[in-house]
Design a binder for these strands. Structure first.
Length: 782
RNA sequence: GGGCCCGUGGUCUAGCCCGGUAUGACGCCUCCCUUACGAGGAGGAGGUCCCCGGUUCGAAUCCGGGCGGGCCCACCA
């Protein structure tokens, strides 16, 4: 063997999870993941969802972020400069809820300054922990120069600037109108934050009297506690039962108020008794009819979800639930409750806290959105959705928008509404852009431009958190902050990865806001990931006890394994089940890849390309095919196709056939050194390409092998390989070769001959003529 | 009430747009301790392609209806 020892350069017999951790530490010191705009390269922007900090990150969330990472890595290797910032969204209710529970206080009874400070401290702690998990999952985002927090001064300053710009454009206005109100959070919320939940309820049949005729009129309602707010009774115009009552007067039980009986198509003759009372406010139908009939609403429920004095002494101060029980008793005592039926109905709840919402008129700021519906639909149609079917989801939501977006919230931990009202003349002073303003504790430091007064009432409210997060793409591209950077980056391709659950909020609001601020479409692509479920297809929840700790699973399985499993298993937009048995199965592949590299590492990599033999041409033509297909799959964000194709090529073609067939040649058994070199060169060329193609999916193992064999620097500085030139195309013969190998191996097995021993009586088929010599020597056919 | 998506061996999945009785993986069974890998190799069993009907020489694939699962929208008081 003339001076060749064939000792594997890779010593370890298998891939270890510890190697992964070493690699992560090395990456932290490098800069391949940094955004370095380069004139020659196209820019690709990934507007990653800034996660809400939490003590323990949900494993399914961590996995959906690895999809984004695969996008970032594959785009880099396709030759883009990729802006992939890591951010956190700390604004909003969850931290406030947490802090209330932690301190055992009601937020509104606590010092605002201190409360906000405590929230900020706790969030900072969680953010650090989450950054660690992100890095452990090998997310190659920018944790430094382009890192951001939506609750930072810098970010909130930008949010306030957008408020000012839109205010000046006349797109934001203040108005008092009935709105969704969460009594628990004591704030107005938008339609997008309302969910409907099927709940058991009671349908009460309440007896009204008709003033003119003295007859009873029975009305069915699920909300008897709103009786004090009843201002009309409607019946369907064609309902024969009630035609004689049109224009007559009903008397509200208990309250003895007179209300008109009006024919109106909104009443469904099939439901209850066909007569429906209109109260302020049971639902938005009530609101509409109040407006239509010019009725004056009564405020029956206050901001804490308790009944007001208007409801009478017996009910005032009670919660809605208590009041409902109480009024039912009162009605029952007086014989005014004719019947009660259990029904299932859909109740609107606040998605953040599951509290049934009330409809209460409050003065709030609104952002115009109704008049943008057509434009929004146009933008929705211009986007590329992955997968396509979610476009409809967005369009459905846009079509359902019927009122403007209430954007002010009566909470503490959020971006302050940057408005002061002149105490003398009522002028609204709006600031923004110069600094981060906190009107609840700060003076604007200027005189009223209208009346010259210096006394201001600072607004105490904050903005809906979606007002912040809907400009993330503008923030990361440094709009209004660094025009040179913005110009360069904004014209690049932009992608929004996210879950389908926030299409109507984050995606919709972003399109709306970016359009209002810049006149442009926020993105080119929307990539929708599915949700991770447990192995039985159920959502993970504390209640079911099926929550997987991300640290736990990543330490047990390794991030590369999880990533490869995810790529192979999960279809974009479809939910997937996290099944550890399957994950362990995928783990074997990494061992296989490692050992292929270990085997190849026994041979030197000739610098010059030697004269290749037919089997070398064959595997290289298969490789060329693979390179084209995998790059195309990456271009289409199809990680499933990319990973599966790579997996099967590596294992079923390269390892099982090419390597087996060239083992004797590589060791120069029956072959010359020149011919061996051809095999060495081919082995390395294929391995090198495989490492590059696998790098976005399994970044650690590929980088480790790469550095041991091919370079000082990380594989992640590289781009995907080009196809190999000067290769005779034999890829059509792959099936034949594999079949022939099987025949030989089977025959040897049947005769009890070892694979490396000679066998008699097998002919190489005609189609495989080009490979005849190699096949004969490889299988030792005599 | 309206709309959308999904339903392929134990589990997951390709194919469906452009019809010819099914792809791959995990798991399972049998055999083989062969010089990169026993976390290996060779071979094998296992499927009414949710159901019913239609179109067709022929349907997982096209059409109609149903069942099951998921999602979105809508005021059922």
């Amino acid at each position: 063997m003339d001076g060749y020892s064939f000792e594997p350069k890779i010593k370890e017999k298998r891939w270890k999870i510890d190697f992964e951790k070493e690699m992560i530490e090395r990456w932290k010191k490098e800069d391949w993941w940094k955004f370095r705009p380069d004139e020659k390269k196209p820019v690709f922007v990934i507007d990653t969802p800034p996660p809400y900090p939490a003590p323990l990150w949900h494993v399914a969330a961590a996995l959906s972020y690895t999809f984004q990472d695969m996008i970032a890595r594959s785009r880099r290797m396709l030759g883009y400069s990729v802006l992939y910032p890591i951010g956190f969204d700390g604004n909003g209710l969850p931290i406030e809820f947490y802090m209330e529970k932690y301190l055992g206080v009601n937020m509104f009874e606590h010092d605002r300054e201190e409360f906000v400070r405590l929230c900020r401290e706790k969030l900072a702690e969680w953010k650090e922990n989450m950054k660690d998990i992100m890095q452990r999952f090998e997310l190659s985002g920018d944790y430094e120069e382009n890192y951001y927090e939506t609750d930072s001064e810098e970010y909130r300053k930008l949010t306030q600037l957008t408020f000012k710009i839109l205010w000046d454009k006349g797109l934001i206005y203040e108005d008092e109108r009935p709105n969704n109100w969460c009594p628990k959070c004591r704030t107005t919320i938008a339609d997008a934050e309302v969910e409907y939940k099927e709940m058991e309820g009671t349908l009460y049949f309440v007896k009204y009297k008709v003033k003119e005729t003295g007859e009873d009129l029975i009305v069915a309602t699920t909300r008897p506690e709103l009786l004090a707010g009843c201002k009309a009774i409607i019946v369907h115009p064609d309902d024969e039962r009630y035609k004689h009552l049109h224009g007559k007067t009903a008397i509200v039980p208990l309250y003895n108020r007179e209300v008109p009986i009006v024919p109106h198509p909104a009443a469904d003759p099939e439901f209850g008794t066909g007569a429906m009372h209109i109260c302020s406010f049971g639902d938005f139908e009530d609101v509409r009819i109040f407006r239509e009939l010019g009725l004056e609403p009564v405020k029956v429920i206050d901001i804490d979800g308790r009944l007001t004095k208007a409801a009478g002494e017996d009910l005032a101060g009670l919660t809605v639930k208590e009041a409902r029980k109480k009024i039912a008793e009162l009605l029952r005592e007086k014989g005014l409750l004719v019947d009660e039926k259990k029904i299932k109905h859909r109740v609107p709840i606040h998605e953040r806290c599951n509290t049934p919402i009330e409809i209460i008129p409050m003065k709030e700021y609104y952002l115009k959105q109704v008049e943008f519906k057509e434009e929004m639909k146009r933008l929705a149609n211009e986007l590329t959705f992955i997968p396509e079917r979610y476009r409809k989801n967005l369009i459905d939501w846009i079509e359902s928008v019927s009122i403007d977006w209430p954007i002010s919230r009566r909470r503490y931990y959020g971006t302050e509404v940057p408005v002061w009202t002149c105490k003398k003349c009522g002028y609204k002073l709006v600031k923004g852009g110069d600094k981060y303003w906190q009107p609840w504790k700060e003076d604007p430091g200027e005189k009223c431009p209208v009346c010259g007064n210096e006394e201001w009432e600072g607004d105490k409210r904050v903005l809906d958190t979606w007002m912040d997060s809907s400009i993330s793409v503008l923030y990361i591209t440094r709009w209004q902050r660094d025009s040179k950077f913005f110009e360069k980056v904004w014209k690049g391709e932009k992608l929004r990865p996210q879950g389908y659950d926030i299409i109507r909020t984050w995606l919709y609001y972003t399109l709306l806001r970016v359009y209002q601020l810049t006149g442009e479409r926020a993105f080119d692509y929307v990539f929708i990931n599915g949700m991770g479920l447990d192995k039985h297809g159920r959502k993970m929840s504390k209640r079911l006890g099926n929550v997987i700790d991300p640290w736990d699973i990543v330490e047990r399985q390794g991030a590369d394994t999880l990533r490869l499993w995810l790529a192979m298993e999960a279809t974009p937009g479809e939910n997937y089940r996290i099944n550890e048995e399957k994950i362990s199965g995928v783990k074997k592949f990494l061992t296989k890849l490692w050992n292929i590299a270990r085997y190849v590492s026994m041979y030197p990599y000739p610098e010059e390309r030697p004269t290749l033999l037919p089997l070398d041409h064959w595997i290289l033509s298969e490789l060329n095919q693979l390179i084209n297909e995998v790059k195309e799959a990456y271009r289409n964000f199809n990680f499933q196709a990319a990973s599966r194709r790579l997996y099967s090529f590596t294992w079923n073609i390269f390892a099982d056939h090419y390597i087996e067939l060239t083992k004797r040649r590589a060791r120069m058994d029956d072959w010359s050194e020149e011919e061996a070199k051809a095999a060495w060169w081919t082995l390395h060329t294929v391995l090198k390409s495989l490492l590059l193609l696998f790098a976005p999916i399994t970044p650690a193992i590929t980088d480790r092998i790469w550095r041991e064999l091919y370079g000082e620097k990380s594989i992640h500085y590289e781009v995907f390989p080009e196809t190999i030139n000067g290769v005779e195309d034999f890829h059509g013969l792959t099936e034949k070769i594999m079949e022939f190998d099987s025949v030989v191996w089977k025959a040897k097995k049947e005769k009890g001959i070892k694979f490396y021993e000679p066998i008699e009586g097998i002919e190489v088929p005609k189609e495989l003529e080009p490979f005849k010599e190699e096949l004969i020597k490889a299988h030792r056919l005599v």
